[in-house]
Design a protein around this nucleic acid. Structure first.
Lengths: 338, 338
DNA sequence: TTGTACGCGTTATCAG
DNA sequence: CTGATAACGCGTACAA
């Protein structure tokens, strides 16, 4: 059978009208049957079912959602970086929850770009999503405020945004970073480098605060020259790490604030085995096979999938028409693993 | 400002009508302006723009797509496992291409379950996606055939399906597996274990064929007791690997057919350091930090993101109304890295 | 250059 | 229990 034989490009999809005609009933009866509506004679139900499957009828969800009071069953998810395994897990957690209600995911990648995030959010609103889960890139939040104003339930994931009243689910960034740093300090390290994203990224700021708090609590001053915030990917982190190793007085331990930085740090250390042997690394975000790494590596674990699930539950609970609760904040725990 | 103050749950979103009224023109003029249509007096254009932004108007894409000849701008993507970093990359590649045309991704996770795949595909068709990219779970393909019959361009990614006439983009599974296995044989290994997914999974079958071909070409018989196909995740692979290590005559090398099995293999070897030291592992699918693993590990690399890009290009080129080409198959190369 | 009328596919309402 | 009618928001065809 050739491609041509089975294609059907021009053919318009069958509609309720077609099914109705084939079943010898009115479109309304078809609609009733397919929506599981009551009060239809069994024989007609059968006729409709037969006609529908014979014609390969599938309800046009877009037309359906046009009617007032109908949901689209779409959830918009805007993520800063889908390729980051961490966020892939978040996406999976979200899907896991909403799929049981027959909802579908409209997924967009912002690439940490506020402008792209704005475009995605606006597009999703235009597609009448029933809710939005956003990992905000930061910067201007007018589009997020607009979403809320448009009555679309919004949940922020991983990152909080100033001046925006919305539900948010976070990881205990500061506490986790504090614990990890405290561990290094307790081991006697006094020159601990910090590698993280730029300070405008919520999680990085919080993790840096935890790093600083641990120092304060231990009564140890940290060297600002060892604090490097601004690496968005592993390549940049690698270069910064090489820099640090070249210092006259290099760090004896590393605190890496996220998995992109960790990858760069480890790659750099692999090129400097001698330095690596005495180096203790504490990494925020666990990653697959981290325990097999040939380094002294401890991780601050947390559960991205659970974060996705939590965000999904929050947004779904907001979809109740009569929901009027104040916005809430949920913080998920971290766990230090030596 | 409290949550309540800014929410607007009941308010219906502004429509062309509202914008028209505010701008003092007819709805048609609004539509023209927003679609970039020609022949509208500049002052009215301005009035419409102002009114639209003042009201926070966003075109209802669902209503728009209802009109004949209009696209939804949606692309359905069905993946077997979003949490697998490999497929996360595929998703990213797809998005990268289609986003430049303003298209959005409807993403679903089938979890290797044909039934869930069917539900997703049917739902996506009902949402009038302009195209579909599916990593098929295998088994019954009636729903995929139905998609094609409904005129929805379909591209299979990673895996081929028998008896279905559709575009497909694959990795050179057999060639890659053959190369990797040949390398082990050339090194003198004679007892090479194979760990892969169940045989009904297209890629695993092809990779196993490559494994066997390399043996035939080298004139070496492989021990069927060392061929273990059926592990879907790293836990199962770990257990199988432990089994293999316990054999009286254990393998001296491992061929792992995918990244899930590789993770399990490495975890098991980490528990048996002595066995690990003499073991050479060849793994299909590269993974982050693979080069830092404290094992003799070679990988068969390929580019999942490029696979996603290719699939996206294929499906987009099929969206031309007059497309009548026969379906095609593109196979992406692999590269062996010692 | 601008406006009116209609229909896309669906379902709520109401009459029968 | 069933069907006719209308309307959801938008864009095309046609009229002005």
């Amino acid at each position: 059978m050739s491609a041509r034989a089975v294609k059907n490009r021009g053919a318009t999809a069958p509609t309720v009208q077609d099914v109705a005609a084939a079943a010898g009933v009115s479109p309304m009866t078809v609609s009733r049957v397919l929506s599981g509506g009551p009060n239809v004679r069994p024989e007609k139900v059968q006729a409709v079912m037969d006609a529908a499957s014979a014609l390969g009828y599938r309800r046009n969800e877009n037309a359906r959602s046009l009617r007032p009071g109908q949901r689209t069953g779409l959830l918009g998810v805007v993520i800063t970086n889908v390729a980051n395994p961490y966020y892939a897990q978040v996406q999976l957690g979200v899907e896991e929850i909403v799929t049981s209600d027959g909802m579908r995911l409209l997924v967009g990648n912002s690439g940490e770009d506020t402008e792209r995030e704005r475009a995605l959010v606006n597009d999703f609103i235009g597609r009448k999503v029933d809710g939005l889960i956003v990992v905000p890139a930061g910067g201007d939040v007018a589009h997020l405020r607009a979403a809320t104003a448009a009555g679309v339930p919004l949940v922020l994931a991983s990152r909080q945004v100033d001046g925006l009243d919305a539900d948010v689910v976070l990881v205990d960034d500061e506490g986790g970073a504090r614990d990890g740093t405290a561990h290094l300090l307790a081991e006697g390290h006094r020159r601990i480098a910090f590698l993280g994203n730029r300070l405008s990224v919520f999680t990085s700021r919080r993790r840096q605060e935890g790093f600083e708090r641990a120092h304060r609590e231990a009564g140890v001053a940290f060297d600002p020259a060892l604090v490097r915030a601004g690496q968005n990917d592993d390549v940049a982190a690698h270069d910064v790490m090489i820099d640090l190793l070249a210092l006259d007085d290099p760090p004896t331990a590393i605190f890496s604030a996220n998995n992109r930085n960790t990858v760069g740090v480890l790659r750099a250390l692999a090129e400097h085995r001698s330095a690596a042997d005495s180096m203790h690394i504490v990494a925020f975000d666990d990653f697959e096979l981290s325990s097999l790494m040939p380094f002294t590596l401890s991780v601050i674990e947390h559960d991205p999938r659970e974060l996705g699930r939590t965000a999904a539950r929050m947004v779904m609970s907001r979809m109740q028409a009569d929901d009027e609760r104040e916005s809430e904040m949920i913080q998920l725990p971290t766990r230090f693993r030596r």
